[in-house]
Design a protein around this nucleic acid. Structure first.
Lengths: 90, 90
DNA sequence: ACAATATTTAGATGTTTGTCTAATTATCTC
DNA sequence: GAGATAATTAGACAAACATCTAAATATTGT
């Protein structure tokens, strides 16, 4: 369960996508333009991020608007700080 | 550079190792006993974690004692909380 | 120096993953 | 409804990865 999450964060392209979304929401196309890889590849990455619960999608006409799921990141940050700093709990 | 770090965290066995080390320092052998995989495989994981700067090693006679590099985790937690929560900076 | 114990490194193998192109689905406009 | 645009899904492929066994390195004790 946390597996999807960490696995999703492991790819640099996906982290870049998340950073872009942190600045502002974007459509799949706007995101894809930022990368030198194929449109379909970015779409695949977006699927992984969505599946991990890191981003949310909403249709907007013919576009798909992606936004960051900010709350999840605070959870992750908390988990890491707690679990791996001698804390007894996970 | 951050790549090694996130990639290291992506594997569940490695995260388990980190959790064990969070409780207390252990030798490679003590860690290996906790997993159903081959000794050499655990050693490989330890190498990855060390390479990522997540753990430190110290020889202790014929044993190798591993300990968590706690400060790094606070950095990661901070990075995640900041970068992916609308912050402008990385 | 030799045998035993602890750990890492090397080489091989099956699986997963990121990427691509091509095909498909969905929406909008005419 | 046909055509255009936006995005995802399918199928293929090469690179990366986790795992294994076997060999190598390091340390201790006799």
């Amino acid at each position: 369960m946390r597996d999807h999450l960490f696995r999703a964060l492991a790819d640099p392209t996906r982290r870049k996508i998340l950073e872009l979304l942190a600045a502002k929401d974007r459509t799949a196309g706007e995101l894809a333009e930022e990368f030198p890889i194929a449109f379909a590849s970015v779409s695949h990455h977006l699927g992984v991020l969505k599946n991990a619960g890191l981003v949310a999608v909403e249709r907007e006409g013919q576009h798909m608007r992606y936004r960051l799921n900010t709350t999840v990141f605070q959870d992750i940050a908390r988990y890491i700080a707690k679990t791996f700093s001698g804390g007894t709990d996970a």
